[in-house]
């Protein structure tokens, strides 16, 4: 099994506003992005359109979490800035993520809009507000213990560098942890 974390920089308050006021437009943007990216079936598009509207409304199904989170990622590609951090792509073991040590920090806060999933099972959505980003960049993750694996240290450093850039732009960070 491999895992990835997809990161999205955003003005979370502005995104929350758009989710409240533009559900139809957001759903159509998801459909347009999926169509442009590949060849989804008509059924895929119907479901994704509905999932997008459900996310905007904050109504989730216990059975469709993976599909809802997949749709959330498509929505964020339109509503936010996708940030690629190679060290968080296609890693094999959750122990590696545990060694990096940052994921619990993403679970301390909730974004100011509803997101699917839970803290108990994958996939999961995490969030760092701009104030948390400010705090963690100021102390360079001082709350975290040292990594065992030097590559985990690289991953932590890369994330810190990106958070510094988000701090300068006064943005928040959404993170989606998925099995791939």
């Amino acid at each position: 099994m491999r895992y990835s974390i997809h990161f999205f920089g955003m003005d979370a308050a502005a995104v929350a506003q758009r989710l409240r006021h533009e559900p139809d437009a957001i759903a159509e943007a998801v459909v347009a992005r999926m169509t442009a990216a590949g060849a989804p079936t008509e059924q895929d598009l119907v479901y994704s359109r509905q999932f997008a509207k459900n996310i905007c409304a904050g109504t989730f199904s216990a059975e469709d979490t993976a599909d809802e989170i997949n749709t959330l990622c498509w929505m964020c590609e339109d509503l936010a800035e996708k940030i690629d951090i190679p060290e968080f792509n296609l890693f094999r073991s959750l122990d590696y993520l545990e060694d990096i040590g940052v994921w619990p920090l993403f679970q301390l806060e909730k974004p100011p809009f509803p997101v699917p999933g839970s803290r108990e099972a994958l996939p999961q959505v995490g969030y760092l507000s701009r104030s948390a980003i400010e705090r963690h960049t100021a102390d360079e993750f001082a709350v975290l213990p040292s990594c065992n694996d030097p590559e985990a240290e690289d991953a932590r450093d890369d994330l810190l560098g990106i958070m510094e850039s988000l701090r300068d732009d006064q943005l928040d960070l959404l993170a989606v942890l998925v099995e791939v």
Partner: peptide, 12 residues
Amino acid sequence: ESAKKCRQKRLR
């Protein structure tokens, strides 16, 4: 322009 927008510190 695309490279300059990158948030990765190493590349910056």
